[in-house]
Amino acid sequence: MQHSATATPLTHLQRLESEAIHIMREVAAEAENPVMLYSVGKDSAVMLHVAKKAFFPSPPPFPLLHVDTTWKFQEMYRMREKAAKDAGMELLIHQNPEAKERGINPFDHGAVHTDMWKTQGLKQALDHYGFDAAFGGARRDEEKSRAKERIFSFRSANHRWDPKNQRPELWKLYNTQKAKGESIRVFPLSNWTELDIWQYIHLENIDIVPLYFSAPRPTVERDGMLLMVDDERFRFEEGEEPVERSIRFRTLGCYPLTGAVESEATTLPQIIQEMLLTTTSERQGRAIDHDQAASMEKKKQEGYF
């Protein structure tokens, strides 16, 4: 995002980037033990990229935390390792030991899978490491209730959010004062829209998981959804055979829960074009999506912005 000529206004992407950098530096300066939640998706990719810029030439002064369910796409795991290495950041991986022990999986356990691996797993990890501030990639355009969540969102010692008791957020003055045990979730991409995210990835040439691009992949059609056969753990139902289709993913979560779309989009402009011209909202790929982080990425679900 170089700014060249004099007296020309900054573009919206320059300003969104600058705002996110400002937010990240405030946290780095005022929080005792911050962490960046990293889900390997496109929003995480943008957030990590901005973090690298915010602290250059230093590496970002906090670790990455991936709350793993063990059921992500294999390509996501490869991207995760590479991204952390490129950024020179420590990568912390947390897998809920109880979910592991009980063999919780998306085929047998439905909503329990998401709750135990993700929701409980996240709380365990934050408590274990004693993080007092955690960056997340959520955006206000994702759903209506998000539209009024603060950039700095407080959590009690029990990780509860009290929407009735949010601090007013004025100018760019963020109040990071908190009692012991309390923590803050910080959303530096609050004011970005999905289009901003894609456009920024395009402009900044950010590496994203190849699954966002169309390619021939082994699939199974089930309940109106296209599922990808990502590894040998996939359970075929009677009569199911993997069929190769040209598909890509709009959002990424646990592979048995994430529906693909048939597409020929192999470049970023084509993806953006497809997104802008889509006439039905994303629920097509989301019939059995219980994945919380992926729901975060759900755009225009109820409203249309």
């Binding site: 206000r140 209506k144 009024k148 009735k164 829209t193």
Partner: peptide, 19 residues
């Protein structure tokens, strides 16, 4: 029971993004 205080909404034209 979610407090309605300040909500931020987004739209864009050819020239500008609006918050």
């Amino acid at each position: 029971g979610i407090t309605i205080d300040v909500a931020y909404r987004f739209f864009a034209t050819e020239k500008r993004k609006f918050i």
